[in-house]
Design a binder for these strands. Structure first.
Length: 300
DNA sequence: AGGTGTCAAGCGTCC
DNA sequence: GGACGCTTGACACCT
């Protein structure tokens, strides 16, 4: 078990998810921004390694506009040495990496152009992980996409489009249950047709449940991860009290987290804490899990 | 320098 | 049929 947090670290001065407006796009601006973002990524990785935070989600803003037609700069070649260096640092410290393209990226849209834009965006994510030299256990997570008033048809369209994705995307793609459209059962149906591993979001399963208890859910999605995919990834967050359903909590509730650790035994997995105060809560979770045998397997 | 409106992208929901 | 939420924050332009 590794414990981690997504995209940004507020404890260090370096801010590595910098971007800019489309209107101010230029190659110079891109180079400057990516240089900064890579430098900060390296600092975050060092911070994480030092603090036993061995799971990290790299921001999709690492290379702004990478999949946009405006970007004709060969950032892949230009930054390849830098990527390779940082990748070595990641591997040396046994850190697991994921990425999560945002809600605009979906492969089952009825509009083919949206699918094609999605493929470009997914390809960009795959290229980042490839340039870092990471194995296929470094994953890219997306949701099922739209329903368009016909879930069966839309689910089938996902399956069909999945088969048309470039191999470099497919070997890393995993499907996450979301908080309104595609619950765990829907995702498992897609898995049965495609073999895509299911990344389990504990909070989404609570908000948009298909009824399984936690133990049963873990039984089922864990089996969708093959040897080369690594151990399953899990997203964990909790409800912010007094806010509307689905709002992420400000800080981790350690009592709930410990119950979660107990309830999920004996399954091993890597857990991403989607909590607003990011690395602060992740550090608390590391302490809470420090006596758990699953956690000790990685951290020696 | 400080204030503030607005930001690449798609979907679903609410009015 | 248009505005808004989706993890909001920070960019960019204005004064």
């Amino acid at each position: 078990m590794r414990i981690g947090y997504p995209c940004i670290n507020r404890s260090i001065a370096c801010q590595g998810d910098r971007t800019f407006r489309l209107k101010s796009y230029s190659s110079e601006r891109l180079i400057e921004t990516v240089q900064n973002n890579l430098n900060c990524l390296e600092e975050i990785i060092r911070f994480n390694a030092k603090n036993q935070l061995l799971f990290f989600r790299i921001t999709s803003d690492l290379v702004p506009f990478a999949s946009h037609p405006v970007c004709n700069f060969p950032w892949q070649e230009f930054f390849q040495d830098r990527f390779r260096q940082i990748g070595k640092l990641i591997k040396r410290n046994s850190i697991r990496i994921s990425m999560h393209p945002d809600q605009f990226t979906l492969i089952n849209s009825v509009d083919l152009q949206i699918f094609e834009k999605g493929v470009k965006e997914l390809t960009y994510h795959a290229e980042v992980l490839d340039l870092l030299g990471l194995p296929p256990s470094a994953k890219i997570q997306i949701h099922g996409g739209g329903v368009y008033g016909d879930k069966n048809g839309s689910l089938k369209r996902f399956v069909d489009r999945y088969g048309r994705l470039p191999l470099k995307v497919r070997r890393r793609l995993v499907l996450e249950n979301d908080d309104r459209s595609y619950n765990l059962i829907d995702c498992l149906r897609i898995n049965a047709e495609t073999g895509v591993p299911i990344l389990f979001d504990v909070f989404h399963h609570h908000v948009n449940s298909s009824g399984e208890r936690l133990g049963e859910a873990f039984e089922r999605f864990s089996r969708t991860w093959k040897e080369e995919d690594g151990i399953p990834m899990v997203d964990y967050s909790s409800q912010r009290k007094g806010e509307k359903k689905g709002t992420h909590a400000e800080a981790i509730d350690l009592r709930n987290f410990k119950v979660f650790l107990l309830e999920t035994k004996p399954h091993d997995f890597d857990v991403m804490l989607e909590i607003k105060d990011k690395e602060k809560s992740a550090l608390k979770a590391v302490r809470a899990a420090s006596k758990d045998s699953r956690f000790q397997k990685i951290v020696r």
